[in-house]
Every structure is written in structure tokens, then in C-alpha cells.
Design a protein around this nucleic acid. Structure first.
Lengths: 206, 206
DNA sequence: CCTTCTCTCCACCTTTTGGATGATCCGCCC
DNA sequence: GGGCGGATCATCCAAAAGGTGGAGAGAAGG
């Protein structure tokens, strides 16, 4: 019997997953959590084999953090991430946090069940679409922006001009341009708007 | 007995809504649809009192269109929109398409049930958070971009220069600038990046 | 200790973008 | 038919953004 805890802030989704899992003779849902904190507490208390974790709690990507904390427990259950959207940043964050697998909510039920059984057995369960993305990511040279560069880019993404950014960060606009030039170079683009677009796609900006 | 059709591309969500509704003695789920087309067909065939419609099918906001088609049927069932995100554009589109109500998937079950019963009775069912947004929107002067303007803005959002846009749309860059000038004016901004940012916030761009 | 990075900062010059203004054409509505 | 808004283009000018190059400070590592 696979004991499962469901962590998702959407009651509808919890009910759906529970309905799907309860119909299986070898799977038992032993708890539901609506918040990351509750998820960690439940995982510690009920000691399930598996936690089905949503990545988006509220508007935050707090699921990755919760995954990390669950995996840090004394007898860590496996964590299977279940989410509806699939930006590269989310995936990477979840895997780094110790998730055993990554499924999309629009996956057919049999795929969900297969993922649960695989994860509970200690195997990896990646949705095919996700696996492809991860591989693509590995092939690409890792793009790392410095803290300052991200700071600048975030302001730019909100529509700030170089002068705005300079003022807000207490630097000259020449420096802002310099940071942006580096960002452009790293991202392989030639304009601020393109940089923002690409950074979004890479999960650097939300 | 309230007869309901569920339209959502996520099997998990369908199972969840069905589980919640099936537990009620006065509600009967008479069909599930995974695509907009299937939703319209089912609505015509089963003649439910109510269609619970997701807005996001795949990556498109095809739910609004499906809502419109359902409301155009001979004996139109009420449509209750059930979605997880709440950008202003989506809300407005759904209401304009003839939706009786708008609920969020993170709403507690009793709110969902209340919404279903209200909508089936012909009343309006708006989640409080949504109602507030709509009011805020009404206070603001209506921002409407023309098809062409959105087309231009979408390319700009991907990092295209004026020349790129001009080439892709087979117009001169003077025209591109003209369109963008109008967009800036309508959105109350002075730069392309700010326009993209604001348009995203308003739900004009995804 | 010295090299080598990275991050931060800045100045000069060129290209792109935005602002202002005006004009033509077309489809739609009263 | 006249008015209106959308789409198209043009020109001129000012401002913002991008390209290039360099310099200092501190961390990493031989």
C-alpha cells in the first residue's frame, strides 16, 4: 500500500487527485495540505511514502522550498511535483530541491498513477514533455546572471528606463548600460525587450 | 436536480469537480469535456442547466470562445467560468462572452457549490476577489487596443525591433512607430518595454 | 605574490527609438 | 454623404538605448 499526502492550495485539485488515487486498491491518501507549512508538517506526522506537491502556492513558487524541507526530514518521503505550468526555472528548482519526478496536471490519469507508483518505488517519474526540456537545458551552456544584473533586469522588465534604474539603484546610467550590455551578451540578444523576453522564458524572471 | 457539464482540459480538475458535485444530492454531472469543441457539443446534446467552463485550454484562452458558442445555442445553459488565474483580460473576456459567473479554482468547495446553485438559478456568481477587480476595471477608462496594435505589441514583447516588426508584418517601420505611439498613448507609457509590461498586467498579452 | 576572474563602475560615439505633426485611404455608422 | 476610427506612410528632431573600451576592487587559485 502506497501512502500518499497531497499538497495543493486548490481544493478542486486536491479532490481530483484524491478521487483518482482512492480508486486504486494499492494507494491510500493519508492527508491533504493546503499550504507548504501544512505539507511539511503532515509529511513528518503521517510518514507517507510519497508527497504529491504543487509548485504554485498562492502566487509564489513556494512548492520548491516545501519540497526541500520535506526531503530534509528524518525519514524523507519521495516528492512528486504536480503542476500545471512548466517554465524551465520551475522544473530546475524542483529537481534541485530533491523532487523525484515532475508531472503536469493535464496529464492523463494513467500517467499520474504510473508516476505515483514509480516515485514511490524510488524511481524517477518525469513527464515526457518535461524530460525533453531538461535535456535541452543541459545542452545549453548554463546562463548565470549576477545578482546585480538580475536586479537591473527586473526593473527593466517593469518598464523602467536606464535613468530610472540608475536612480533606484544609486548608480549612473552608464553603469546600468554596462550591466545590460553584459546581460545582452549572456542571453544572446541585442535589446532590453528581447532580454526580458528571453529571461522570462529561461525562468530567470517571473 | 441541477444537471452540469464540466469542461476542463485537466483530468485531475475534472475528477475533482466531479467528486465535489457528485457528493451533492441536488447536483448531477451529466458529462465531461476535455476540449472547447467537445464542451459545445456536449452542451448541445445533454442540455444541462449549467456548464462549468475552464478558461485555459492548452495554452490558449479558448474558454471564452467556447462560452460564446455555448450561449449561442438554442436553449443556452448558463456558463460558470472556473479558472485558476485571474488576469483582468480573462475576466472581461469571459463576462463579455456571456458567463454568468467567475470562480477561482482555489475557492473553497462551499463557494464552488454556492456558485453552481446561484448560476443554475440564473443569478450571477462572482468570487469576491473577482468582483473587486471588475469594479476597479470599471473605474478605469477602458483600454482597447486594435487588432493590429496588439499584433505589433506581441512581436515587440518578443524582442523585435521596429525594423523586425515592419518586415514581419510587411509594412514600413514608420507605420510600426505609428502603431506603437498609439499603444503608448493608450497605455499611458513612454517606452516599448513599459508598454509590454503594462499590457501583460492588463491581460492583453500573456 | 601574482595571475585571473567577476562584479562593479564610467566615458565617448553610433544607432534606435520616441514625439510631433500631417497626410492618404478605406470601411463603417448615423 | 459626412464624420470617424483604423491602418498606412513621411519627415524632422530630441532622447534613450546600445557598442566599445577601459579601470578599480575583491575573491579564487596557482
Amino acid at each position: 500500500m502506497i501512502r500518499v499526502v497531497i499538497a495543493d492550495d486548490h481544493p478542486v485539485v486536491r479532490a481530483g487527485v484524491r478521487a483518482l488515487l482512492d480508486a486504486e486498491p494499492d494507494i491510500e491518501v493519508v492527508g491533504e495540505a493546503a499550504t507548504p507549512d501544512a505539507a511539511v508538517a503532515l509529511a513528518a506526522e503521517r510518514a507517507p511514502e510519497l508527497v504529491l506537491m504543487d509548485l504554485q502556492f498562492g502566487d509564489r513558487a513556494a512548492g520548491a522550498d516545501a519540497t526541500r524541507r520535506v526531503r530534509a526530514l528524518a525519514a524523507p518521503p519521495y516528492v512528486l511535483v504536480l503542476t500545471n505550468y512548466d517554465t524551465d526555472g520551475d522544473i530546475l528548482g524542483a529537481v534541485e530541491a530533491g523532487a523525484s519526478g515532475y508531472l503536469l496536471k493535464d496529464a492523463p490519469p494513467h500517467e499520474l498513477l504510473a508516476g505515483v507508483r514509480a516515485a514511490a518505488a524510488g524511481q524517477s517519474a518525469l513527464a515526457p514533455a518535461i524530460a525533453g526540456r531538461l535535456l535541452a537545458r543541459l545542452r545549453e551552456p548554463r546562463v548565470t546572471l549576477s545578482v546585480r544584473e538580475i536586479e537591473v533586469l527586473r526593473l527593466v522588465a517593469r518598464g523602467a528606463s536606464n535613468a530610472d534604474v540608475a536612480q533606484r539603484l544609486h548608480i549612473t546610467d552608464a553603469t546600468v548600460k554596462s550591466h545590460l550590455a553584459h546581460v545582452f551578451s549572456k542571453l544572446g540578444v541585442t535589446s532590453r525587450t528581447a532580454a526580458v523576453s528571453k529571461a522570462r522564458g529561461l525562468g530567470i524572471l517571473r
